[in-house]
Write a protein that binds this DNA or RNA. Structure first.
Lengths: 149, 149
DNA sequence: TATTGTTATACTCTATAACTATA
DNA sequence: TATAGTTATAGAGTATAACAATA
């Protein structure tokens, strides 16, 4: 039967065929790679995403930013507050609709975005180094379809 | 009513090209779909994964189970404890190595695994309904490569 | 000393509910 | 009433550190 000194191969065939499971494993590998490359003062991926969308859409409202990234209003608020704390984003009340808060990058925000993007791009390059350009685009398209977009 | 706004399209082209971002969105969509289909007494995906590996590898040690699924020992312990609490898994000290705890499914565990797998399979079918069998296999293979396996 | 497992803990992510202010 | 934003909070998921028992 089982010899303690001989490691038998583990059968994980069922889980290894599930897209949901493989998504979890791939996400974990991505998170670990970025975390290993980033220093304590570097922006997290979600922060780089937020700054990117604000940069491309100056004056975007918080709710629009959250909706674009799939983050709920209640979770968007503290994330934006943190970016404001760091001096990377300006919150300006809309002159037209007093409920809205319009977001703009500061100069420091633009600098931080540049550094954050460099980290992300290097990280993405590492993680997809074994994929051809065609495979990478294929993966992106399939993920968008799983995400319902 | 609010003023009908001329909604300008939001530019999210930069994030929409990042694999890491798309993985997060796809994972979120998967989690939401499973959560919507599962009742409060149904097993979570990670629990179904654990039961599946225990079923296919009777007597597997906790550490091996965690390593197989990419879960650390410290996080595996309470997850297994919960499955034991639910009466789905038996913990048996190894007769050969007193440090090891061998895991086996109970009869209730086998039943719960059947139900959990049904939910997962239906969920996976829904989420990949727009994909051909070839595309689904392609996605699985690409995710394994991102995960480094 | 190394390995297996446990407990405590902390931080992030995500979710709901209750609240304020404005439309 | 509906919408935008905030705060509090709770639950997973995941990370490290310290510890006990066994090899």
């Amino acid at each position: 039967m089982t010899e303690p000194t001989v490691s038998e191969p583990i059968d994980s065939s069922w889980v290894d065929a599930q897209i949901g499971y493989l998504l979890r494993r791939a996400s974990a590998a991505m998170a670990a790679d970025h975390a290993a490359a980033a220093g304590p003062d570097d922006l997290r991926p979600v922060q780089v995403s937020m700054l990117s969308v604000v940069e491309a859409n100056p004056g975007i409202a918080q709710g629009e930013l959250g909706a674009t990234l799939g983050i709920r209003r209640t979770n968007t608020a503290p994330l934006v507050s943190r970016l404001v704390e760091l001096g990377l984003v300006d919150r300006r009340p809309s002159p037209i609709d007093g409920r809205r808060v319009e977001l703009h990058l500061t100069t420091a925000g633009r600098d931080a975005l540049g550094r954050g993007r460099e980290l992300i791009v290097a990280h993405e390059t590492r993680m997809t180094a074994g994929l051809s350009d065609h495979e990478r685009a294929l993966l992106a398209g399939l993920l968008r379809r799983i995400a319902g977009r």
